[in-house]
Amino acid sequence: MPAGSSSKRERQYEHIKDGAEERGATPRRAKEIAARTVNKERARSGESREASRTSLRDEKSASQRGGERSHRGSVSPTRDQLYEEAKKRHVEGRSSMNKEQLRKALGR
């Protein structure tokens, strides 16, 4: 935490860090998550000298969002990946199928 942080932000940092560690994050990653979260909250409330545009642009704080954007990393397989899986499983007619048809044929 930066020098001069409030006791509230110190408690918030510790709470977030402990929670991240309980969920399996390494201590280093937990500290990073906590620091980024607290710094963003500080920026939004005007407690820091500098702030990124994204810190100020959010309509809701991270705690208010409740993980709304935390699953951006889940990406569906491409049509080519589905086609290769269908090929391995010997799905008939796979060459003329689109992505959705391949997904259905593979039971996804």
Rank of each mutant, 00 (worst) to 15 (best):
M1T: 06
M1W: 03
M1Y: 03
S7T: 07
S7K: 10
K8L: 05
R9C: 11
E10F: 07
R11S: 08
Q12Y: 04
Y13L: 08
E14L: 06
K17M: 10
D18E: 09
D18F: 06
G19K: 02
A20S: 13
E21P: 01
E21A: 11
E21D: 01
R23Y: 09
R23C: 09
G24A: 05
P27C: 08
R28P: 00
R29D: 15
A30Q: 11
A30D: 11
E32F: 07
I33T: 07
A34E: 06
A35E: 12
A35K: 12
A35I: 01
R36S: 12
V38R: 01
V38K: 02
N39W: 06
K40C: 11
K40H: 13
K40P: 01
E41C: 08
R42N: 15
R42Y: 02
R42F: 01
S45T: 13
S45E: 13
G46K: 02
E47M: 05
S48R: 05
S48A: 15
S48Y: 00
R49F: 11
R49Y: 05
R49L: 13
E50F: 02
A51R: 00
S52Q: 10
T54S: 12
T54H: 08
S55A: 15
S55K: 00
S55I: 00
L56A: 01
L56D: 01
L56Y: 01
R57Q: 12
R57F: 06
D58M: 13
K60D: 15
K60E: 14
S61T: 14
S61I: 03
A62I: 08
R65P: 06
G66R: 09
G66E: 12
G67P: 05
G67N: 03
E68F: 12
R69E: 15
S70I: 01
H71R: 14
R72N: 08
G73Q: 09
P77R: 13
T78M: 07
R79N: 03
R79T: 09
D80F: 05
D80T: 09
D80L: 10
D80Q: 14
Q81V: 15
E84C: 09
E85C: 06
K87A: 11
K88G: 02
R89G: 02
R89T: 03
E92A: 10
R94E: 10
S95W: 04
S95R: 09
S96F: 09
S96D: 14
M97T: 03
N98D: 14
N98M: 04
N98G: 10
N98H: 05
N98I: 02
K99H: 09
K99A: 08
E100T: 08
E100V: 04
L102A: 00
L102E: 00
K104T: 12
K104H: 11
K104V: 12
K104P: 03
A105S: 07
A105D: 07
L106N: 02
L106A: 10
G107K: 07
R108P: 00
R108V: 03
R108G: 04
